[in-house]
């Protein structure tokens, strides 16, 4: 019998093959994080020895960590995949940023609207993403194939029943399906698999001395000089790492000594906080993830 990780891997490969076989214009959302790294690895496994039969799409907000950009360019070049980078140019023109506009506006304009623009522009019908059901409560109800209407909206009440391993990916024009092959993986599964398969991830996941300031009890890394410092704030070098990666001003670091994958796994065995705690955008309101999803957020 297959082990737990082998079954998860086989199930994800099955899902990826299944939806791509029926897609007219598929794409994979690539956010540069650990889940994206695992998803890319699985997609390569699904179609080997052929190349991945779809491009990657990175919806860039302009505020990712510098190391993420380096990692993105290196990884996609080495894997020989097509990468589409989309930035909401309207947002850039209005200089939308997390400091002046707050996390909610920044995320909506640069991430949610940016994603919708890219999907409208390229007319993708099958959109693979690395979301997992264990990330957040409203994600627990998400289908593996999640139907979105022509306005990219998610309506929890109009989702298709998903029986056995039979997926209904049929859509009319403008409608689309977001597919989550990692639905049944937990955060621990992701790290265990990265360890087992020696998958490269952004070095920010590993502890190192980094310049941070403390805001509202959260450690924020000063990744470049665009970050305005409040009076009395001086960046201090602390040994930190990130459990989740996003826009650097919105992603809190945790103090840690975990410098390797082995250390991360050991740390997880004893940790008491979920990874999304470092995501400032989930804490804006109760039910905020569900609301963002309805509006088209991934």
């Amino acid at each position: 019998m297959l082990t737990h990780l082998q079954r998860l891997e086989a199930e994800s490969i099955y899902i990826i093959r299944e939806v791509i076989a029926e897609a007219k214009k598929p794409v994979m959302l690539y956010s540069v994080g650990k889940d994206s790294s695992v998803l890319l690895h699985l997609a390569r496994k699904a179609f080997a020895p052929a190349n991945i039969p779809f491009p990657l799409l990175h919806v860039d907000t302009g505020w990712k960590f510098r190391e993420m950009y380096e990692f993105r360019d290196r990884t996609t070049r080495e894997a020989g995949v097509d990468l589409i980078i989309h930035v909401n140019s309207e947002g850039v023109a209005h200089n939308i940023n997390p400091f002046d506009h707050g996390s909610e506006v920044h995320t909506d304009v640069m991430k949610t609207q940016g994603l919708k623009q890219a999907l409208d522009k390229y007319q993708f019908d099958i959109i693979l993403g690395g979301a997992r059901r264990d990330e957040e409560k409203s994600r627990a109800k998400e289908r593996i194939c999640s139907f979105r209407n022509g306005l990219h909206r998610w309506d929890p009440k109009s989702q298709r029943p998903e029986l056995w391993r039979t997926y209904n990916t049929r859509v009319s024009s403008k409608e689309s399906i977001r597919v989550f092959p990692l639905s049944n993986w937990t955060e621990f599964d992701i790290w265990a698999y990265i360890h087992q398969e020696s998958i490269a991830v952004v070095p920010l996941y590993f502890a190192s001395e980094r310049p941070v300031v403390e805001r509202k009890g959260q450690l924020i890394m000063v990744d470049d000089n665009r970050m305005p410092l409040l009076s009395g704030e001086t960046p201090m070098l602390r040994k930190v790492r990130f459990r989740t990666l996003g826009c650097y001003p919105l992603t809190a670091a945790v103090e840690s000594n975990a410098e390797s994958l082995e250390d991360i796994l050991c740390e997880m065995v004893s940790t008491r906080h979920s990874e999304r705690q470092g995501r400032l955008i989930d804490h804006d309101n109760m039910g905020s993830m569900e609301k963002k999803k309805q509006e088209g957020y991934f």
């Binding site: 621990f188 082995e262 796994l265 050991c266």
Partner: peptide, 10 residues
């Protein structure tokens, strides 16, 4: 060790 943890878990 982490490797053992992963092996047992996997």
């Amino acid at each position: 060790s982490a490797t053992e943890v992963v092996q047992e878990y996997a």
